[in-house]
Computed example of a mutant assay.
Amino acid sequence: MTNRVLILGGRGRIGSSVATDLIHHTDAHITITGRSEDTTWKDSFPGDRTDFLQLDLSDDARLKQAIAQSDLVIHCAGPFHYRDGSVLDLCIGQGVNYLDVSDNAGFTQRALSRSDMAAAADVTAIVNSGIFPGISNSMVRHGVEQLDEPEQIHLSYVVSGSGGAGITVMRTTFLGLLKPFDAWLNGAWAKVKPYSDRQPIQLPAPYGKVHVYWFEMPETFTLAESFPVKTVVTKFGSVPDFYNHLTWIAAHIFPKSWIRSKQGTEFLAQVSFRMTSVTDRLSGIGVGIRSEVTGKKDGQPAAYVSTLVHSNTAIAAGNGTGSIAQLLLTGKLHKPGVWAVEQALTTELFEQTMQSRNIQIHHSWAKA
């Protein structure tokens, strides 16, 4: 029988990229949802493999019915700052596997707290899939596995312009600037200010030297829980660099109460989206990731570096989520419970799916 996949928020840039990946790499029938009636999806997807369902996530009855008719639910309806665990709860209640593209630490912690319930229902639920978090988590896992004693993880992301990911990602970025967050530093949790401690890193072409800042991501705590390391650093930056300076101003000068309001967040997101729609023509919409894991190998200090560059952030995110969905649908990935990507996906399976999507990740040893 044909697997049926329900993509919540499937009309957005990330959701549609996930749908495209599934069409290319699976035989699943895909239902795309949105809050309003839409026919434009027909221009992008084959009608015999996809259909559209008008659905508001607040309509519990219709949502429950849609989930019951599915073999896998992929939650792409962000920003996840505003989401609770109700979709996951319904999936657990219906015995349906779950996957999401969440990027909010609070949402992730609430989802992971449901792991025992998911395991009891034989439901495999994986959170934080996509490009970052997602592919980045598996890059770190690969690095950790190269060392005998991993001690520190430094994970950096850089996005060109809008990243092709749509306005929801803009909203998420500004919501992430609201308050200091906990980071795992030297074996203890410490408060860190968002968009602080500007740092240069080196990425492959076309990026070269770029700058990144502290930014709260779910990996901040999932990597600390997944691996025996003393420090986890997660940093983010933009290209062109003047966007970094504008974001720094928003983080350190703008009143937090204004950003916290939906009107303030929406204003900043809309202005940023319009600006990047112009600069995207020059900067592109790609993404760069650098993972460095330091520790000991054969008793000596060592550092293992992995880098990835992709020309389209949204497509890369679709590949990351679609690859895990493919593994769930084929039964190659079955791990009842709720997991972050690095906890559920083996390096072997990760490398297989990346190769099938022509995503190249470069690895090297560096001076510790």
Rank of each mutant, 00 (worst) to 15 (best):
L185S: 04
S156M: 01
D38R: 14
A28Q: 06
V278Y: 02
W258K: 04
R357S: 05
F132W: 04
E216C: 04
T247E: 08
S238D: 10
K367N: 10
V278R: 00
R281I: 05
Q360I: 08
A250F: 01
L185V: 04
T313W: 06
D27A: 09
H211P: 11
R4F: 06
I201N: 07
L268T: 02
A120V: 02
P194M: 01
A340F: 13
G47M: 12
K367E: 12
L203A: 02
T40D: 08
W339R: 13
E225M: 10
V18T: 14
S291E: 00
H363Q: 13
K230A: 10
A77W: 11
V123C: 13
G299V: 00
P133N: 03
Q326R: 15
V278M: 03
K335P: 12
L22Q: 11
S113R: 12
N319M: 05
S356G: 00
S16W: 06
E266T: 11
M170I: 10
I32S: 08
Q343R: 14
S277Q: 15
G161I: 15
V287D: 04
F350G: 05
V233E: 01
Q146L: 05
T321W: 13
K230E: 12
V101K: 14
E351C: 02
S36N: 13
A224F: 08
G130C: 03
I131K: 00
Q360W: 00
A28S: 13
K256I: 03
R114K: 13
Q146E: 09
P200Q: 03
F215R: 09
V210F: 03
I285K: 13
S261M: 05
P200G: 01
R198P: 01
A340I: 09
D122V: 00
Q202M: 01
G164Q: 10
A314D: 11
E37H: 09
P218H: 13
S261N: 03
Q65W: 00
L57H: 12
G295M: 10
Y98P: 03
T40Q: 08
M117K: 05
R281Q: 09
S364Q: 12
N312P: 09
N3D: 13
Q65T: 13
R62Y: 03
R83K: 14
R62C: 06
G164F: 06
F52K: 14
